[in-house]
Simulated scan of single mutants.
Amino acid sequence: MSALDAHVVVERAGFRLDADVQAAAGEAVAVMGPSGAGKSTLLGVLAGLVPLDEGHVRLGERELDAAPRPRRRTTPSRRGIVLLGQEPRLFPHLSAHANIAFGLRVHGATKDVAAAEADEWLWRVGLDGMGARRPAELSGGQQQRVALARALATSPAAILLDEPLTSLDTETAGDVRALLHDQLAATRTTAVVATHDAVDAVSLASRLIVLEGGQVTQSGPVREVLASPATRFTAAVAGLNRVAGAVHAGRWERDAMVLPAGDEASAVLSGSEVAAVFRPSAVAIERAEADTWTGVLRLAPTVADGEWLARVTRLEQTPAGVRVRTADPEVAVDVSADRVAELGLAPGVPVRLRVAGSDVRFVTSC
């Protein structure tokens, strides 16, 4: 096992990645961020595929990369780091068994040892009896299992997982995710997992780094980051509403939206920028008593603390019903499909929203 320590700076036209990543020996760290945030570039640097402009990459006692001076660059094959992406990238002309054995042979194992280890890993990833099949004869999930076995069989110092479950269907992804969890724990391999799925972060990692626009916007234990999101992106990943505002005299305010902040929160946060965080399922929704926004504005005097008026912007189907998106401010509300039909909700419809103070947490804005 080896600890990973990296400060990565990469300059591109119109983009700068500047991020720190640390993982203790045997620890799995998740990296999340929107498309274009720099996740794949970060993993490319760690794997030795993308050169550093500034910073360093250290794995255990070895300094793999350093820039700008003195410049050091270790080739990918000599790093002891394996990168596993969305595509398994198996050799199509080799069987599953031979694909796994190939990696072991490259790392110096004898033919007999490589064959025995490949058999063991096929069993560990649930593919015993399928070793003679070529990739074209395996499902996407089975191919990814072979790729994982090939990666871990060589006992790498660290493994990088670049959204390895994205191309799999939900059920298969769940199975492979469970396999990843078990094998990372069993082998105690240091891992960095780039993902867009909170389930991956919760299932596979102990710490979470959020990367947005090339910068780390939040990091910490997975549960703490998802419970107190510092940005709207993180809140969306966590399935929470996050609305920025300010606390004054026991009341949190954002335009016409006012929530009771409580004495304790008010004393600590008064005068500072504060975000209200609450679940979409905690928001009650009713159709406003007017059909036009001009008419709705006349209802403002009837709005109590914890209530606000808004307009529906769109409806999204969820496994449990419908997520109603509203503005301004942007708030999501989870309701059943029959309730949406009952209220006649559609884009542009004015609504009255309400959330109890006990369902709201206040966090300092970033």
Rank of each mutant, 00 (worst) to 15 (best):
A320H: 12
A300I: 05
V296G: 04
R287K: 12
V333H: 01
A288W: 07
R311E: 09
L299A: 07
A310K: 03
T294S: 14
A304W: 03
A320W: 07
A290R: 10
P301E: 04
E289Q: 12
A304Y: 01
W293G: 02
P329V: 10
E316W: 00
V322P: 06
Q317H: 10
T292M: 06
A290Q: 03
L315C: 08
P329N: 13
W308C: 00
T294A: 12
V296I: 04
D334P: 00
A304T: 11
P319L: 11
L299G: 11
P319R: 15
V324L: 04
G321I: 14
A332W: 05
R311M: 14
L315R: 15
P329R: 11
L297F: 02
V322N: 04
G295H: 09
R287I: 08
T292W: 09
A304D: 12
T302Y: 02
A332L: 02
V296T: 12
V333E: 02
A288G: 04
R314A: 15
G295L: 08
G321M: 06
G295R: 11
V312G: 05
G306A: 14
R298M: 12
D305H: 11
R314Y: 15
R287D: 08
R325A: 12
R298K: 14
E316M: 01
P329F: 07
P319W: 15
V335I: 15
R311P: 00
A300S: 14
L297K: 06
R325K: 09
P301Q: 05
R323L: 05
A290K: 01
D305P: 11
D291I: 02
P301M: 03
G321Q: 10
V331W: 01
A320E: 12
A290Y: 06
R323A: 06
G306V: 04
A320R: 15
L315D: 13
R298T: 15
W293R: 13
T294E: 13
V324H: 06
D305I: 00
P301Y: 06
A327M: 04
A290E: 11
L315G: 10
V333Y: 02
P329E: 10
E307Q: 14
G321V: 09
D291K: 05
A310Q: 03
V331T: 09
V335K: 03
L297C: 04
V303E: 07
R314D: 15
V331D: 00
A332R: 05
T326V: 12
T318L: 12
E330T: 11
V331R: 01
R298V: 12
A300R: 13
V312A: 08
R311F: 10
P301G: 09
A327G: 03
R314K: 15
L309D: 08
V296A: 10
G306R: 13
R298W: 14
R325W: 13
A320M: 09
G321W: 14
T326R: 11
A304C: 02
R287W: 07
V331L: 01
V312T: 10
L309S: 03
V322H: 03
T292Q: 04
E330A: 14
A300D: 06
A320D: 12
T318D: 03
R314H: 15
A320K: 11
L299P: 06
